[in-house]
Design a protein around this nucleic acid. Structure first.
Lengths: 119, 119
DNA sequence: ACAATATTCAACCATAAGGTTGAATATAAG
DNA sequence: CTTATATTCAACCTTATGGTTGAATATTGT
């Protein structure tokens, strides 16, 4: 049964961009305004604004308006959900890891064999 | 210091697609050939072949040719690395979660207040 | 040798993603 | 009231993504 979890889709897609992942990390240290978030980046404020919007749609950050400033807070819950998804798979993977190890060793051996006492 | 981890980029981007995530999950049960992987999907074999290529480039699966068949094995290590990345952030987020809880409660209260003893 | 099977390559298409610039909006400060 | 600040909206551009179809390649079975 092929399960499609749309929430995790958004989380993964949002985190796949390095700029956005950096923003998430910075927000781990505390709330920031849009302009503050944008400061370290070479790109335009508008581009950062868009990234923020993506993170917001993925429910990774939460926006609260205080006057003209928009203050962003990190909401770690979707990432924790992702962590749980990964943790859940772990037992399944134990067997795969072992099989893979054997496989890779065998391949390396074969590759070495390929050029017999290479000059 | 804004750290950019290109390996994690690829892992996240590869997993962000539901088809690819399903493939990863199926491979958790054991190795499969390309055609076998493609079977449950409505899309063309070619499309699946492309997805497989993406997973391969992200080092999430490993391909071994046996005659005309290409046998794919899951390599869970990049996902485990992702799990570690998430686990590493966890302590940082504890504080954020608390702050967020308070914030959301306050907002709900404000929203309820907005319509005083709504009819 | 020939046909069938397993898979990729190549070209193409539509839409999404990430970026830009310039104008609009909302609030704050002089 | 006027100006400055914070932020988004809108339009546009380029490149990436996910999909298609048709042909090519490699291997296996008859």
């Amino acid at each position: 049964m092929i399960q499609t979890e749309p929430a995790i889709d958004a989380t993964l897609a949002a985190l796949a961009d390095p700029t956005r992942r950096a923003i998430v990390q910075r927000l781990g240290g505390g709330d920031l305004r849009v302009t503050e978030i944008a400061k370290p980046y070479a790109m335009s404020l508008n581009a950062v604004s868009k990234h923020i919007r993506v993170l917001e749609n993925a429910r990774l950050i939460h926006r609260r308006r205080v006057g003209r400033e928009h203050i962003l807070s990190l909401d770690p819950r979707p990432i924790e959900a992702l962590g749980r998804w990964i943790a859940d798979q772990k037992p399944v993977w134990a067997a795969r890891l072992q099989a893979l190890d054997a496989l890779l060793q065998a391949e390396d051996a074969a590759k070495t064999e390929e050029q017999p006492h290479a000059r």
